[in-house]
Design a protein around this nucleic acid. Structure first.
Lengths: 186, 186
DNA sequence: AGAATTAAGTCAATATGGCTGACGTAAATT
DNA sequence: AATTTACGTCAGCCATATTGACTTAATTCT
C-alpha cells in the first residue's frame, strides 16, 4: 500500500493553532462559515462513491465507467450525444470508456430505427446486473443514513439536494431523474 | 469550448425504451432502487464543487489545491503527515500541489517548535482570504439549498451526511469537523 | 438534387491528479 | 548507537479529462 497513511490520520497535534500566526485580521465573520456541512459533504460523497469504486476496481473499471453504466442503465436507448450532455464530458473522453464497456460486454450499441446514424446505448444482461448491484450498494448506504431521522427526512434530503443544484439546470435534471416524489417548486 | 454539449443535453429521444430489448428478467425489485437520490447527490455534489473550481481555475489551480487549502485553513499548524491522512493521498501527490501553493504564497511552512523535523502548514494572509472566499461561495449554495425547508432541516441534513460516512471513520471525522452542533449518537 | 447539418467516431497531443518504488536527510526516540 | 519518524525528491506509470482537426454516413434543409 506504499505511502498512504490511514492509521496515523488525525493522530497528533492537530489544532496546535500557534499564536505566533495571529488571525490575519479580517474585519468580518469567518466564524459563521458552515465548515461542518462543507466537510460532511466532502466525506459523505467520498464514501458514497467508494462502495461502487471497490467493486468496479475488480473489473479494472473506474468511476468514469460507473457513470456511463449508470446513465445508460437508467436511459436505455440513449443517444451518444445525449449521454455526453448528461455527463458533461467530450466525446473523446467518452469514447475510450464506452469502448471498454462495449468490449467487456457491459453495454451494447444498436443502430437507431428511425435514424441510422445513431448508435443507441443499452446495458446488456450482464451490464444490467452490474448496474443493479452497484445501485444496491448505494441504496444500503442511503438507507443507513436515514435511520433514526425524523419523519419526512427523506423528502427533506431530496429537496435539499435538488436545491443544491444550479437553478437553471434543475428542470433538465428533474426530467432526467423522474423521481417518484413530487419535487415541483412550491 | 470545443466539443462538449450542454445545450443539447437531454434534448431528444431519451427513454425510447425500445421493447426489442426486454427487461432482462430479474426476478426481484429493480424498481425500488433510489435512483433519484443517487442522481441528486451526483449533480448536487458536482455543482457544489463547481463554484470553487471556477474561481481556482483563474489561479491555475484545481480541486486538489482547494482541498489542501481548505484543510490547512481549518487546521493551522497541521503536520504534513496528518494532512496526508485526512486527504487520503500519498506524499508524492501532495508534494506537487503543496509546492505550487507555497510558491504562489498561499500556504506557508514553518519549522515545528518542539520537533524541528516538522514543516507545519499555515495559510498566508492571501491564502486565508482565498479560503474564506471559496467557503463563502459554498455557504451561499448551502443556504439556498435550505430555503423553504421545514424547521430543523439543517440538523437533519447534517445528520444524514454524517450517517453517509463509514461508521468506523465517523469518530475521526467528527473530531476533525468540530461542528458547533451536537452530532453525538443518540 | 445538392448543400448543409448532425451523429458518431478517430488521431494526436496535452494536462491534472493520482499511483508505485526507491532513496536521502535531518531530527527525535529507544 | 541504532532505529524510527517527518519530510522531501527522482523517475516513471496510469486514468481521466482536455483541445483541435478530420472522416464517414445519414438526415435535413433549401
Amino acid at each position: 500500500m506504499a505511502d498512504v497513511n490511514f492509521k496515523n490520520a488525525l493522530s497528533s497535534p492537530l489544532r496546535e493553532n500557534d499564536p505566533g500566526l495571529p488571525d490575519s485580521g479580517e474585519a468580518s465573520s469567518d466564524d459563521a462559515l458552515p465548515y461542518d456541512l462543507v466537510e460532511l459533504l466532502f466525506f459523505a460523497y467520498r464514501d458514497f462513491t467508494g462502495d461502487p469504486d471497490e467493486v468496479l476496481a475488480k473489473f479494472e473499471f473506474g468511476r468514469a465507467h460507473h457513470r456511463v453504466l449508470h446513465f445508460v442503465e437508467r436511459n436505455p436507448g440513449i443517444m451518444v450525444t445525449d449521454l455526453l450532455g448528461i455527463l458533461g464530458i467530450t466525446k473523446q473522453s467518452l469514447g475510450r470508456v464506452l469502448k471498454q464497456l462495449v468490449d467487456a460486454g457491459i453495454i451494447e450499441q444498436r443502430e437507431g430505427n428511425h435514424d441510422r446514424r445513431q448508435r443507441l446505448l443499452y446495458t446488456t444482461e450482464t451490464g444490467h446486473a452490474l448496474a443493479v448491484d452497484l445501485t444496491r450498494l448505494q441504496q444500503k448506504r442511503l438507507e443507513r443514513a436515514l435511520i433514526g431521522l425524523p419523519d419526512g427526512s427523506e423528502e427533506t434530503v431530496r429537496r435539499f439536494l435538488l436545491q443544491m443544484i444550479d437553478p437553471d439546470a434543475r428542470p433538465d435534471i428533474l426530467k432526467l431523474i423522474r423521481s417518484s416524489f413530487d419535487l415541483r417548486d412550491r
